[in-house]
């Protein structure tokens, strides 16, 4: 029990950890940038009146929501290059996996927001002659987005936590860097604790803002979509 903590080692490797954190944020940001529009497209596909579109899109969404992201990542990193003959580095495999994986969840956030809008709004838009796309863009989405923000931020938090998996395919994110430093210095306790703290420092404010927003929306009588 008489363990002597030594955070000096962590401090001396701070630049590596911060570089890892930057890489974590980079993968998260890119996955978000691709995952959001893809998620909206999937949501619209799932809400389509056309069965031939709705059914396969639903299957894709459910598949990516119901399988572990690490399996998806390994499939994209190890299996896909063999199937296509295209080399794929850890970074691209990670961005690809987490874009698709998060889009499946964003699709459900979008869908929840869209269906939470009363039918009367669609009908009023239709009654003045709007096409479905116009009604969606001008009337439904602007109202839905407000309700979706908490659920959306919640997904961003989950996404960033999930990106730690990129360490398992040797992409130098925060966890990967921490692991390297821990092995080199034989100080896993300090290094992994600090890594956890770094994640917490980024994610906790996000969590707090989710709760703040939910409270504010609840007070203004808005429902939030989940």
């Amino acid at each position: 029990m008489g363990y002597e903590w030594d955070f000096g080692i962590v401090l001396r490797n701070a630049d590596l950890l911060l570089l890892g954190l930057a890489n974590t944020l980079k993968v998260t940001g890119l996955a978000l940038a691709f995952g959001l529009p893809l998620g909206l497209a999937l949501a619209l596909g799932r809400l389509s009146p056309r069965r031939w579109l709705r059914a396969p899109v639903g299957l894709v969404v459910e598949f990516f929501r119901s399988t572990p992201p690490i399996v998806q990542l390994f499939w994209f990193f190890f299996a896909l290059p063999l199937l296509t003959g295209i080399e794929i580095d850890p970074f691209r495999a990670s961005v690809l996996t987490f874009s698709i994986q998060s889009s499946a969840f964003f699709a459900e956030v979008f869908r929840g927001g869209i269906v939470s809008i009363e039918r009367g709004q669609w009908e009023a838009a239709k009654a003045i002659g709007m096409a479905r796309g116009q009604a969606l863009r001008r009337v439904v989405l602007p109202q839905a987005v407000k309700r979706m923000i908490p659920a959306f931020l919640e997904r961003v938090i989950e996404l960033m936590k999930t990106t730690t998996l990129v360490a398992t395919v040797s992409y130098a994110d925060l966890l990967y860097q921490a692991n390297n430093i821990a092995q080199r210095t034989y100080r896993p306790l300090e290094v992994f604790t600090v890594a956890a703290v770094l994640y917490f420092v980024v994610l906790f404010p996000l969590s707090l803002s989710v709760r703040g927003l939910e409270r504010r929306l609840a007070r203004s009588g808005e429902t939030t979509a989940h």
């Binding site: 936590k161 730690t164 966890l175 956890a196 994640y199 917490f200």
Partner: peptide, 12 residues
């Protein structure tokens, strides 16, 4: 535990 990745928790 909600605001750190589960993988980090396991590894820790």
């Amino acid at each position: 535990f909600r605001n750190t990745p589960a993988l980090v928790q396991i590894i820790w």
